[in-house]
């Protein structure tokens, strides 16, 4: 009896063990796959950046930005049913009519902000929290505001689990920025608005930069870069994400 029991128990333990090992195997396998996919994504972004150099006046994105892109696990920021496409160079739906931006556009927007280690950045429109995570890798503090409550809570939870301690998520209206924490070195506005909220311009430090993607949820038509110079004068630069000259011929 005992022996049988023992055997049984051993088998049971064995079974548990083997299932565990198997699961671990799949888990590490999956992690490896994601890492590989992420590396492929980085290659693609780098190739795209070379073609776009015309607009951003340099041949490649800031290596710091690319390092952040290759570190942040994008698949953690998409709904489970989209995980297989997480590293495809395209925007994905994340529910509530919102999207996680195309990786290339995220890299371009982050690069346009010229992030530095000691900086403070504000994001209006947290969404999945992916952009905030990328910024958190690059700057000292990220403050992010999401107007859609369930999305904001999800992002807050997610960023906490992934240990992004320098990101603060708030749920609410982003129109007035985050006065207590301002002014900011950089601001990203991904929430749709009919115009650039004046309070955000005010909360931009002299020398600061604000980036706004313009278009629909799935297609960014252009990026607007708002720059405030040392004297506080504000200008915008309108940037097409791609190298496309409207005229053929020599013009």
């Amino acid at each position: 009896m005992n022996i049988i029991m023992c055997l049984c128990r051993n088998r049971f333990v064995l079974l548990i063990l083997s299932v565990f090992v198997l699961l671990m195997g799949t888990f590490t396998q999956a992690q490896e796959n994601y890492t590989k996919a992420r590396q492929a994504m980085i290659k693609e972004i780098e190739a795209d950046a070379r073609i776009t150099s015309f607009y951003i006046n340099k041949k490649e994105f800031d290596p710091k930005v690319m390092a952040a892109m290759s570190k942040v696990p994008r698949h953690e920021f998409v709904p489970w049913q989209e995980r297989l496409s997480a590293y495809a160079n395209r925007p994905l739906p994340i529910g509530h009519g919102q999207t996680i931006s195309q990786p290339y556009i995220v890299a371009l927007m982050t690069d346009l902000l010229k992030p530095e280690r000691q900086q403070k950045v504000l994001e209006v429109g947290t969404g999945s929290g992916y952009q905030a995570a990328i910024l958190a890798e690059l700057v000292a503090e990220v403050f992010t505001i999401e107007i859609i409550e369930p999305l904001g809570n999800q992002a807050k939870e997610r960023l906490k689990q992934l240990n992004y301690r320098n990101v603060t998520v708030r749920i609410g209206d982003g129109y007035y920025g985050w006065e207590e924490q301002g002014p900011f070195d950089g601001i990203v506005v991904t929430a749709a608005s009919s115009h650039i909220p004046p309070p955000l311009i005010q909360q931009l430090k002299p020398g600061g930069r604000m980036v706004i993607p313009v278009g629909s949820r799935f297609m960014v038509q252009q990026l607007v870069l708002v720059e405030k110079d040392a004297k506080g004068n504000v200008t915008t630069r309108q940037i097409l994400p791609v190298r496309f000259v409207p005229l053929t011929g020599k013009h």
């Binding site: 209206d173 009919s194 115009h195 650039i196 909220p197 004046p198 311009i201 504000v234």
Partner: peptide, 17 residues
């Protein structure tokens, strides 16, 4: 709760809403 604030094309120098 949150006003619509529809004012497309608003100048960068504007202050009101």
């Amino acid at each position: 709760q949150i006003p619509l604030r529809h004012a497309p094309g608003l100048s960068l120098n504007a202050s009101g809403e």
